[in-house]
Design a protein around this nucleic acid. Structure first.
Lengths: 352, 352
DNA sequence: GCCTATAAATGGAACGTTCCAATAAATCAA
DNA sequence: TTGATTTATTGGAACGTTCCATTTATAGGC
């Protein structure tokens, strides 16, 4: 039954003995056509193996139903989860979103955005790649395509953002560490060109300052946001004269790396060195020891972003309010018992 | 400069003082137009903020450059890696593939495939969802759209497949276990409705038979292909009267679950119970203990699939040869020392 | 100068839909 | 019956490209 050339509504019309307009109406589920006619047409559609041509339709409709999700790193389970959250709401709205990966590469991102625009997307949810230039989204804005940023924001952009409360999350985590009796704290991983980094580091700093940790007792080491980066951070931190006894990591991947590096040195994550992660990916719970981490409800943020996008499309606007998602610290085993209750010698300077 | 209605080649033509045809030629990089004219046109394109309308173009060209990748579970890092491999080759071919997730749901898969067809994809690389019905790809075949299956195959389909050598991988793993002195072996996780499962189990069985393990010493327990499934498998296996001492797991996620469950019971993965995974995801190396696993070169298979797809599109065929990727067993720590030399202390393990 | 050959630019007809305005058919009020 | 009203159906003109067949401009040969 594989016809040579693809079937069009004209073929269906001929087959069913009606006009192309009638077929079009049936396709759109219009209530104007007589039920028997609709049945006849639908049968013809089935018979000729018709495939709807959305491109042709969009030519007239000027309103496509394609939504793009631009993700900066698909291999990071964190972003995969974000994507899944978004998908859930789009699915229930009958929309199939297309995911494109930029692999944290601004040039690739440019290509991806261009391609999606050419495809005539109705809207875009983007987790911008690191090093995105300020002008990267100008074309989108000019074209009036609604855009939402998820998880990351750009310095001076007016595009709505859905992000967790990074500042507060970092604050909570640092406060937890200090409460456990740690006095020399580190912040591991990430780099200053990310706004997220500044927010998290800001929360860390504020906790240290308000809870009486001197600036010289804070170690901040930038690094890759991966296991490898975590390993490197720990190594350089422990090489200093007065090494920290605890670290807040930029994300869970870094934290896993730190724990790995500790083990390699015969140190036990928790009792010997406390580590806290950020994002609370699913593995955090299953790690040995289980990772204490700042939970950000990734999938929930994804859903939120999708809802905002849907609303923007519906009200044909390009503006929307930012949304800062709640966070909370999930305490597990990677910070060990309270430091003061430990009879380990090694003369650590316990201030109080 | 945000014009109300989107600019078309007519607007550019007016702006540049040429005809629409000339603009079209410039857009396609034709060598027929005078360089100065091309420059003039390109400037106009920039000025009016023009966005190419690929839908309209495809209406005439009948050959889109959209390729879809349909993935059954994006949150599984294994499939994410597969996607990344494919992307690498598409990127260097200058095309942006769109990823769609089916979340292992055949109904969703149907929607996704329909949507991609309507979008006029040039080709599709699919890792079919579990429980896909035989007819699910009939429409695609009728429409003559090239399709390649990656990692999974459908029972009686004639669609080309790119997959690792599951049988051999499982054989190698089981042989390794037997070589370590194990005599009661288990196969954990997966379910019989997946062809992959049958292949892997087949390899396992063959190794056992040729290397002298009796059928009654083989325990086969189906289960979810996740950490949770692994936990369940181990629990039911250890509840039998003569429990196995080693297990080949359907994939790494199951293996992680098994190791977790062992730890919960105070057993040490390796010395107390040997476990081998399948797929060799990146985490396998970083686990404690590091997981012995069958490496399948996921990204490489993705690249392969992409190449095959490109070739199919180019030669406008819907047929291609299957490709069975090489596998190899990466021996790490999760099988412990040889079983026969057992009273050695567990050196590399962590503090119990 | 004229004719031919080549180079550069152009108008028009398609591509497969939607949607408006118009028609045809059926129903109803008088 | 007639006209008005409602219900179903239909033709035609868009939508923004590509590509073929032409036209126009430029150059070359004699």
């Amino acid at each position: 039954m594989a016809s040579r050339a693809k079937a069009t509504i004209f073929d269906i019309a001929r087959e069913a003995g009606v006009s192309k307009s009638t077929v079009s109406l049936v396709l759109q589920g219009s209530g104007l056509i007589r039920p028997e006619t609709a049945v006849k047409v639908r049968k013809a559609i089935e018979d000729v193996g018709y495939v709807y041509n959305r491109g042709a339709a969009n030519l007239r409709k000027a309103h496509s139903n394609v939504i793009g999700m631009v993700i900066n790193d698909l291999t990071n389970p964190f972003f995969a989860e974000l994507a899944v959250g978004m998908e859930r709401v789009f699915q229930s709205a009958g929309i199939v979103p297309f995911i494109a990966n930029t692999a944290e590469n601004p040039v690739r991102q440019e290509e991806v955005l261009k391609s999606l625009m050419e495809q005539g997307v109705a809207g875009l949810i983007v987790s911008p790649a690191r090093g995105t230039t300020p002008g990267a989204f100008r074309r989108l804005e000019m074209a009036g395509v609604p855009v939402v940023f998820a998880m990351r924001r750009l310095p001076e952009s007016r595009i709505p953002v859905i992000t967790p409360d990074n500042h507060r999350g970092a604050y909570l985590a640092a406060a937890h560490l200090i409460g456990k009796g740690h006095r020399r704290l580190a912040f591991f991983g990430g780099s200053a060109d990310l706004v997220v980094y500044q927010e998290r580091l800001g929360g860390f700093r504020e906790a240290c300052e308000t809870l009486g940790i001197a600036a010289r007792d804070m170690t901040v080491i930038e690094g890759e946001t991966s296991r490898r980066g975590g390993i490197a951070c720990l190594d350089t931190a422990l090489a200093t004269s007065e090494p920290p006894t605890a670290a807040l990591c930029f994300n869970d991947a870094v934290a896993f790396g730190v724990m790995l590096a500790l083990r390699k040195r015969g140190l036990e994550p928790g009792p010997d060195f406390a580590v806290v992660g950020f994002d609370d990916v699913v593995e955090a719970e299953h790690y040995m020891p289980a990772l204490t981490s700042v939970s950000v409800d990734t999938a929930g943020l994804g859903e939120r972003a999708a809802h905002v996008m849907l609303k923007m499309i519906q009200s044909r606007t390009t503006r929307a309010e930012d949304h800062i998602g709640a966070v909370n610290l999930v305490v597990r085993e990677s910070c060990g018992p309270d430091r003061r209750a430990r009879n380990r010698p090694a003369g650590m300077g316990d201030a109080a």
